[in-house]
Design a protein around this nucleic acid. Sequence first.
DNA 1: GTAAAATGTGACCATCAAGTCACATGACCA
DNA 2: TGGTCATGTGACTTGATGGTCACATTTTAC
Lengths: 220, 220
Amino acid sequence: MPKQTFHNLPTEKREKIVNAAIEEFAENGLENASTNRIVANSGIAKGSFYQYFADKLDVFNHLMDVVTNEKTEFFKDKRPPNRNMDTFEYFRWMIKVGMEFNSAYPRMAQAASRVLFVEGLYYGKKFVEYHERAKEALAIMIKQAMKNREVDPSVDVELAVMIMETWSNAITTYIVTEGMKQKDIMKWVRSAKTQEKIDKMLYVMEYGLRKTESKFEKHF
Amino acid sequence: MPKQTFHNLPTEKREKIVNAAIEEFAENGLENASTNRIVANSGIAKGSFYQYFADKLDVFNHLMDVVTNEKTEFFKDKRPPNRNMDTFEYFRWMIKVGMEFNSAYPRMAQAASRVLFVEGLYYGKKFVEYHERAKEALAIMIKQAMKNREVDPSVDVELAVMIMETWSNAITTYIVTEGMKQKDIMKWVRSAKTQEKIDKMLYVMEYGLRKTESKFEKHF
DNA sequence: GTAAAATGTGACCATCAAGTCACATGACCA
DNA sequence: TGGTCATGTGACTTGATGGTCACATTTTAC
């Protein structure tokens, strides 16, 4: 948690620091992020940094709070296009709004995905909470889908969660790395071609999970 | 490429250096690997290191050659259990032998997967060749599967390759990170539970790609 | 207006990194 | 044996890192 001094700062200054941190983490990940560069790019003194934050990880955790809030705000006024969606349609819709968010705040998304999904794999216990929370939400979804008979009940939940998570991360990583090469990332994400690609990836996942004739059983 | 002086070294010394490098890359990735630690752990002098290699990347590239050779050797005496496999059975068999390899040389696998699939995502052009080569091989497979009518021809090849690659990487990462937590990684990989998990992941992918009724078309 | 408390500051420290180089050691050959 | 060339060596340079601290400046309270 950032210290009180940080929260007392005028909004503009706070944002400048947060933006510098986002830029640094997006460009270098957590391990290789440099507090020296963060302070240089936010125009504050080294000493001040340590009056606001305990260390690098503290800034990063604050950043994740900012992302969470922005994302919640972003989702707030988005509504699924129709009420009678099945779980997969809903998942697809969620992924797409998520990608809209990522293209609206590409560096934020890049910093988060890079550190949580990529570096995080090898960090041990540092980010398990984020991970667990995401898995929890997916597990609820998949259980609902099973109740609705949209997913074969022979598919085990843990596995389905892993599959959905893998795809969600793969798509995010794709959008974030490919998107950064585009001159207008938002236009690129919204383009028919990119949307179709996302759709197709999700359909392949969906057909794999959906099949209702318990074909798995045959193989064991 | 390592310099001639390195190749002139007695095998034992060369192996000690390679092992120290594997350990270092597996534990820290490429960016955070330390040549100081590598020399310390291989019992050679700093100056010698630079007589053998140009820099860190040079050692890593040599390591990838070693991995490639070991893997080729490992696959050499493995034969698919039956001759009439379809492409998916073959892919599944290949993945499984690959995982056997990974559990036989876990640190090697960890170093390679960590640097190539994980860090590599954000490295720009440094590792595209490895990536391109892997994609090429998968593209050949998927085209063959289409000829055999095992894969819906409406699935585009590039997408299918991305899907297979994503799964292959996800499984490798899973085996390597989870496996390192086990006391006997090889036993764990060979256990019915782990094999079943791998199977199920691949079946979900397979069913997604396989469906022959061109369901994709309906959605566009 | 003044004292006290809070905030800002950058020179400074210890540590580690990659890479160099003058010199030591050993191998080979005439 | 003596000489030369390849190999081995670790102290050293340079530069960056995270983190500290004595002091300067600003804000607040009275």
